[in-house]
Amino acid sequence: MNSPVHQTLVVQLQAGETDRCPVFAHLAYDAADPFALTVVFSHDGHVLARWTLDREMVAEGLLRPVGIGDVRMRPVSNGTLDELRLEFLGDPRTDGDRHHAVVYAWAPAVSAFLRDTYAVVPQGQEEVRVDDFLAEVIAGG
């Protein structure tokens, strides 16, 4: 049985027009869901948000802009620092707009995490056990 991969990073959160502030991003990967990464953002012991991301999309986001829906990613470099810019669109606000946040993560740390996930399930060798999935759905109701 392959063990899950976990990594905690300090990332920079920018919500709205505010300055960036540091928060924790707790990354997790489990071979039981081989296409997905989970990221939980927290600050001062409080969970700010939890997102499930496509592993391939994160890898591509390190190289080029990806995403057209609630999650968008692209590489950003200022010449001395390479970052992954993750943009999240959340639930509607009372003014009719949607909650919006941008997170900047140090790209080499994200790449290292992805390498660790590929050691568990190599890229291109992901598979979904349909029979197990159907049995779980049927058992649940």
Score class of each variant (00 low, 15 high):
55 R>C: 02
89 L>Y: 04
40 V>P: 00
10 V>C: 15
34 P>S: 10
53 L>I: 11
113 F>L: 02
110 V>W: 00
93 R>N: 13
131 D>V: 00
138 I>S: 01
73 M>C: 07
9 L>D: 10
74 R>F: 07
107 A>I: 11
75 P>K: 08
33 D>K: 03
132 D>T: 03
87 E>H: 14
52 T>Q: 02
112 A>G: 05
137 V>N: 02
106 W>I: 12
103 V>H: 05
81 L>C: 12
1 M>K: 09
60 E>C: 08
115 R>V: 03
54 D>F: 00
120 V>M: 03
28 A>E: 12
65 P>F: 14
69 G>C: 07
118 Y>I: 01
55 R>H: 07
107 A>L: 07
118 Y>G: 01
3 S>N: 14
29 Y>P: 10
103 V>W: 03
30 D>Q: 09
105 A>L: 05
116 D>Q: 09
114 L>D: 03
129 R>Y: 08
16 G>A: 12
103 V>R: 04
48 L>M: 10
91 D>F: 13
56 E>S: 05
25 A>R: 06
12 Q>E: 14
33 D>F: 01
52 T>P: 00
93 R>E: 13
116 D>Y: 05
9 L>Y: 10
34 P>V: 13
133 F>W: 06
4 P>Y: 13
9 L>M: 14
41 F>W: 07
55 R>Q: 04
97 D>K: 14
107 A>K: 05
42 S>F: 11
91 D>E: 10
1 M>R: 09
134 L>I: 07
97 D>I: 15
135 A>N: 06
51 W>V: 09
30 D>G: 06
130 V>M: 04
11 V>N: 08
58 V>F: 02
137 V>R: 01
110 V>H: 01
20 R>G: 15
92 P>K: 14
26 H>L: 12
39 V>Q: 01
8 T>C: 14
15 A>Q: 15
32 A>K: 15
123 Q>E: 06
133 F>A: 07
123 Q>R: 00
15 A>P: 09
94 T>K: 13
138 I>L: 06
123 Q>V: 02
96 G>C: 15
139 A>N: 08
22 P>N: 15
36 A>F: 01
140 G>T: 09
29 Y>H: 11
4 P>N: 12
133 F>D: 08
58 V>G: 00
117 T>G: 00
42 S>V: 11
76 V>H: 14
57 M>Q: 08
130 V>R: 02
19 D>G: 13
62 L>R: 00
40 V>N: 04
62 L>N: 02
47 V>N: 04
59 A>V: 04
77 S>P: 07
135 A>M: 05
100 H>M: 06
95 D>A: 09
130 V>S: 03
124 G>W: 04
129 R>F: 08
63 L>C: 06
92 P>H: 15
95 D>K: 11
79 G>Y: 13
93 R>V: 15
